[in-house]
């Protein structure tokens, strides 16, 4: 338990400080690098939470794919040196006050949530969470645990029905394909009207 706590505090501090640096760095390239560290810290938190496949997917897709896209975007849109993109004090103070207020509201709400820590049987769980993830995606009914849905009145509990996520997974993959084709269409180099013969 202590190892988990120490790892959590290290990873959470790393992630939170990197997120702060993303917000408060003025240079956009440095902001992208801090965002890279934030995403890597989030992947570490996923590993700590026992979601190994998600941590690997976060590293592969986010850190390897999306961040490369963002950095290419930064490189392709080098701003003119004369035009400064600095935010003035009024906008900073407005954004910061809204952020602090929102965090205060969220903290008040979170303190009213009952505390949940590890159940005692969870210390010996297997490391093969990706196996159950794959079974659930395939609609294998043995992957969904027999349990009662929480959040309902206790005198009338609802049994959870069988769930399968193969169709949403396919929809998401087709969505990604369509979106990438659309992005390639949008970002293509257009011929200027004056250069037309």
């Amino acid at each position: 338990m202590t190892l988990v706590a120490v790892l959590f505090w290290i990873l959470a501090g790393f992630t939170a400080l990197s997120a702060l640096a993303v917000t408060f760095t003025t240079r956009i390239v440095r902001s992208a690098v801090w965002l890279l560290f934030t995403l890597a810290g989030t992947a570490g938190l996923f590993f700590l939470l026992g979601a190994e496949f998600l941590g690997a997917a976060q590293l592969l897709i986010y850190v390897g794919g999306t961040m490369v896209l963002v950095i290419f975007g930064v490189m392709l849109t080098a701003s003119h040196p004369a035009s400064s993109l600095q935010t003035n004090i009024a906008e900073w103070s407005l954004a910061l006050s809204v952020g602090v207020l929102l965090y205060a509201v969220l903290c008040v709400v979170l303190f009213s949530v009952p505390a949940v820590t590890d159940a005692p049987e969870e210390t010996s769980r297997s490391l093969l969470a990706s196996k159950y993830l794959g079974s659930a995606l395939l609609g294998n009914s043995s992957a969904t645990p027999a349990a009662w849905l929480t959040g309902f009145p206790s005198e009338k509990p609802l049994p959870r029905t069988r769930v399968h996520y193969l169709l949403p997974f396919e929809i998401v993959s087709i969505h990604l394909l369509v979106v990438l084709v659309g992005a390639a269409y949008l970002a293509r180099a257009k011929r200027r009207p004056e250069t037309k013969p």
Binding site: T23, E91, W92, A95, L96, V100, Y103
Partner: peptide, 14 residues
Amino acid sequence: AFLLVCGLVCMMAK
């Protein structure tokens, strides 16, 4: 929640 607020401030201020 902290990451959410950081992202929100980033969206508003940049």
